[in-house]
Amino acid sequence: MRWWVRVAVLLGALVVWQLVSVLAANPYFPPPLRILEAAARLWPSAHFTADVLPSLARVFGGWAAASVVGVAFGVALGRSRALADYFEFVFTFLRTLPPPLLVPVFMLVFGISTEMEVVTIAFGTVWPVLLNAVDGARSVDPVLADTARVFRLSRARWIFGVVLPAAGPKIFAGLRVSLSIALILMVISEVVGATSGIGYQLGTAQGASDLPGMWAWIALISLLGYLLNRGLLAVEHRALAWSRP
């Protein structure tokens, strides 16, 4: 889709929203211009270094840790039937645990701290990456595996030159799902267990019944989610250019 169509549509939606909210005059739904005002007041202020950056660091930290562990483990499990069998029941079970429920456990272990938030995010995001990596590593074509054996590839080149790229599309699909889960867990863990961060400010705005402020923080979360997703898609597009005929 052309970028100007995108922008035009978004502007159109904002204008409609402005008109409707002004007409409705409901305090819970402030017009976008008021939200923008609040955003201009909140985003570039001290909150940027005190809240926005820490939140981003937590999301990235947890997500990156989960990605590394998930890919490494996933590839190992995907290439070894026996290993996959040993972990099957444990992982099937662990991945269905709703991560918000474990926040009290992590809070008791790590206290109200950045570690708690990072661990919460990492625990929740590791599963999609791991399971997709397992799937991807398993899906290496048997003919390709035979070819690798015929040419007596070293173990490292088999893993990094064949298995990882072959699993690439699946791994990226997992990373995308993980990213959205990371944002959810960032908000939850910051609302209950942090003294800084976007989630914490959202909770504070709620406590102060500052509705435009709440909307401004929500809008920031949405914007961040959009930008992170776009960024990941751009990386994926480059990394997987070979897979698009």
Partner: peptide, 26 residues
């Protein structure tokens, strides 16, 4: 699809939990 997709692209990454304070107030 053309006119809704850009809006959906912004709404989808918005974690539902971010709307919790608003939804509770409402």
């Amino acid at each position: 699809r053309l006119i809704t997709m850009p809006v959906i692209e912004f709404l989808r990454p918005l974690p539902s939990v971010a709307l919790i304070p608003l939804a509770i107030a409402l």
